Simulated scan of single mutants.
Amino acid sequence: MRAVPRHLFIPDRAWCSPDDEPGYLIDRTADPDGWMDAVYSNTAIVTQLDDGTTDLSAGSGDYTSSCSMPSIVAAGLDLLDPYDGDEVLEIGTGTGWTAGLLAHRLGDGNITSVEIDQAVLAAATLNLKNAGHLPRLVLGDGSAGWRDGKPYDRVHVTCGVDEVPHAWVEQTRPAGLIVFPWMPRWEAGHLTRLTVTGDGTAVGRFYRGCSFMMLRLQRRGVPEAAGDYRESSTYLDPRRIVRSSVGADVAVAGMIPDLNGRHADEDNGEFHLWLWSEDSDAQVHYSPEYKRVAVLQRGPRDLWDELEAAFLWWVSTGSPGRERFGLTVTPEGQHVWLDSPANVIG
Rank of each mutant, 00 (worst) to 15 (best):
V73K: 02
W182S: 14
H190N: 15
P22C: 13
Y290T: 15
P341Y: 00
E115N: 05
A251I: 08
E289R: 15
A99G: 11
V179D: 01
Q171C: 08
G140I: 05
I111Y: 02
P257L: 02
G52W: 03
W276Y: 13
G261Y: 07
T197I: 09
I91K: 04
T328N: 04
V203F: 00
L56M: 03
G198K: 12
E115S: 08
V138R: 04
R208V: 03
G92C: 06
W35R: 08
G247Y: 02
L303D: 12
L79W: 14
A103W: 01
A74W: 01
K150D: 08
Y24E: 11
D199P: 01
D249L: 06
W314I: 11
F311T: 09
P300D: 02
L312C: 07
V164C: 13
V284W: 01
A251K: 05
Q283Y: 09
I10V: 14
W313I: 10
T64P: 13
P11L: 04
D305S: 12
S316P: 15
W97A: 09
R324W: 08
R185M: 07
A253M: 06
I45R: 09
W186Y: 15
D162K: 02
R230C: 02
N130S: 07
L312N: 13
G321D: 13
G318R: 01
S340W: 09
V196L: 14
N42I: 05
R322W: 12
N260Y: 12
